[in-house]
């Protein structure tokens, strides 16, 4: 596999990751969100493997496998069980309507392209052009957390954001050291469990998973 072909495959995968990030923004059904998230994990893992192959860094294979296991199977499964157990309504409720969110998303993509321009000029890696996409994925994840009402969609937004960070790491510097990545993966897993526990707690306290209810926690004056 030549460098240029690898770069092309990588940019196609980057485009797909961006597409899934937008898909997360426009998806109305909660299971659809989970599927999209899992697909994003698949693309991320393939991309990591491709980068690992071209750069000859074998520890990236481990990251790829870890991503595949964790983000494609484990986390979606945990969330699926959560949704099922908590009997959450299957529709996602958004605070800002979807076309507007999408337009904001486009603006964020342009912004992150603009931000990463200096890095792109300096970098010599095969993956340099995908950095903008990685940053955009982070921002889109944040946007999703801001514009959605339900706690579950917030989690998915958070995980998508983490996907973006991971992708940024592979595209900017061919990945973080393995130890760091293992640590982050563990963190994510634990975060998912903690979120799960939180959900149960929130629901027993407020009888709802609407984050609006949390406003009641503030001190009355």
């Amino acid at each position: 596999m030549t460098q240029t072909l690898a770069a092309q495959i990588n940019s196609v995968l980057a485009a797909l990751i961006l597409l899934t990030a937008f898909g997360l923004l426009m998806q109305r059904r909660i299971y659809g969100l989970l599927h999209l998230f899992a697909w994003q994990g698949v693309f991320l893992s393939i991309s990591t493997a491709v980068v690992g192959y071209t750069a000859g860094l074998h520890h990236l294979y481990i990251s790829a496998i870890l991503t595949l296991a964790l983000k494609v199977f484990a986390l979606p499964y945990i969330l699926y069980v959560l949704i099922h157990k908590l009997n959450i309504k299957k529709d996602v409720e958004e605070m800002v309507n979807i076309p507007t969110t999408m337009l904001m998303g486009i603006a964020l993509v342009i912004f992150s392209y603009h931000l990463t321009a200096p890095v792109r000029e300096l970098s010599t890696l095969v993956t340099k052009s995908t950095l903008a996409v990685a940053l955009a994925t982070v921002m889109l994840g944040l946007l999703m957390m801001i514009t959605r009402k339900k706690a579950v969609t917030q989690i998915i937004g958070f995980l998508a954001l983490e996907n973006g960070l991971f992708f940024a790491a592979t595209s900017a510097t061919y990945g973080m050291p393995l130890v760091v990545e293992l640590g982050v993966a563990l963190d994510i897993l634990i975060a998912a469990f903690i979120f799960g526990i939180f959900f149960f707690q929130i629901r027993t306290t407020f009888d709802s998973l609407e984050l609006k209810e949390m406003e009641k926690l503030k001190e009355e004056d």
Partner: peptide, 17 residues
């Protein structure tokens, strides 16, 4: 709108990637 966003993404990725 989705079609439009996709087309825009296409154009953006032409410049970006």
């Amino acid at each position: 709108g989705i079609a439009f966003i996709l087309a825009t993404l296409g154009m953006l990725s032409f410049f970006m990637l």
